[in-house]
Design a protein around this nucleic acid. Structure first.
Lengths: 214, 214
DNA sequence: CGCGAGGTTGAATGACCTCAAGCGGTGTGG
DNA sequence: CCACACCGCTTGAGGTCATTCAACCTCGCG
């Protein structure tokens, strides 16, 4: 029905996962495993960290807190994703465990050193950060121009494949509603209402009219 | 006065310009100059471009348009900035000239090839994209959690040093209010009111209470 | 002089937030 | 084993901030 792809026709999540962390594979031998409990902090805000982490199991969130209590979740990360890479000079986002997680820890200096030796590795890094950047751009549209319904619909699609099979069959999301709210720039109650409405309207597909981008 | 830097104490623009385009210098000889008139398109949305551009003079905006007319400006770029780099596989943002601009055009394949040969160059690229990423994160906070006043205040600070000396002394910004609105995720009228209010409250510093991030 | 583009201002509407109460599940201690 | 408390989720009612709609103004230009 759409005549030309001159503009985006909806706000759906970017392709099935662009920037993952497989490029860290060559450094696997130099990495150690670390575990964090639910809600424990992995990297502090403004901390100058020497490490980055590849997620093995569990879910991690990055966040920036403001003095007055407002908070913005940067992203939710899952097995195969990397946290703490874009950190040169200290990153303003903290990272915390959403669920119990196991991570593989890499020394940033080692990554940098390896990139200086191996051009192919460096190229893989570039593709990774470039993909991150493109995801960020899409997020601008969502946060800048998306309605509450669109943000929630976007989020639900992003989370497809990351639902946890809870015993009671309750909310299958690994994170709390508060986290989702701070991820989407909405009030907790708005997220709750939106998800309820979308559930009533047929489970996965929240609203029929979702005019925001890929 | 702030006890600890555990959280961000306001929403001011990131340090005096993090990711600029000086790293392209080594390829200068292979680049050609191009000019674009005000409002003409430089890169089309979803186009797979072979080039990126270093801005020499003028101002450029990147934007994503939605079918229904909504639009999000990605960023405003000034001399020394790069447009169209994070493009591998086609970028969803278009680029257009805000004012008459002169650009230096670089072939992406040439950049990539040079990065494979020169590890230092590749490192500079990494630092550039990393800085871009950090700027994007801050934008999340602004768009997700900032009030209209905070967004406008942030924008005004970002534009310091980019004011054009207009003959009439009118709005010294190079871009239209509509562009600013689509950059900040606000209505045009809201931006206008905000800027008027900030002007009345003392020129540059719009509002005394601006609790959002760097 | 008339026209159009961009900017400014006012009034009314509405989307989302805030406040507040209530519910179900889980964990803890008596 | 039950009572209680706490946490996270849900739902309702009311308020607020930004949007929407609309008029008017200014400037530059044909």
């Amino acid at each position: 029905m759409s005549p030309a792809p001159a503009v985006k026709d909806d706000l759906s999540p970017s392709a099935p996962f662009a920037g993952r962390g497989r490029w860290l594979e060559p450094l696997r031998s130099g990495a150690v495993f670390i575990r964090f409990r639910r809600d424990s902090q992995i990297v502090a805000q403004d901390e100058v960290s020497d490490y980055c982490f590849l997620i093995v199991t569990g879910c991690v969130r990055t966040a920036m807190a403001l003095e007055d209590g407002r908070r913005q979740i940067g992203e939710f990360l899952f097995p195969g994703d990397i946290v703490g890479y874009d950190t040169v000079g200290g990153h303003p986002f903290s990272a915390a465990a959403v669920s119990d997680v196991t991570l593989r820890r890499f020394r940033l200096a080692a990554i940098e050193a390896h990139a200086m030796r191996d051009a192919g590795f460096a190229q893989a890094m570039r593709h990774f950060t470039t993909a991150q950047l493109r995801k960020a751009h899409l997020r601008f549209v969502l946060l800048g121009r998306g309605t509450a319904g669109e943000r929630i619909a976007y989020f639900m699609r992003e989370m497809e494949g990351h639902m946890v099979s809870s015993p009671t069959g309750r909310s299958a999301l690994p994170m709390k509603l508060m986290d989702v709210a701070d991820y989407l720039g909405l009030a907790l109650e708005t997220v709750c209402r939106g998800m309820t409405a979308s559930r009533r309207a047929g489970g996965a597909a929240p609203s029929p009219d979702v005019p925001l981008p890929h």
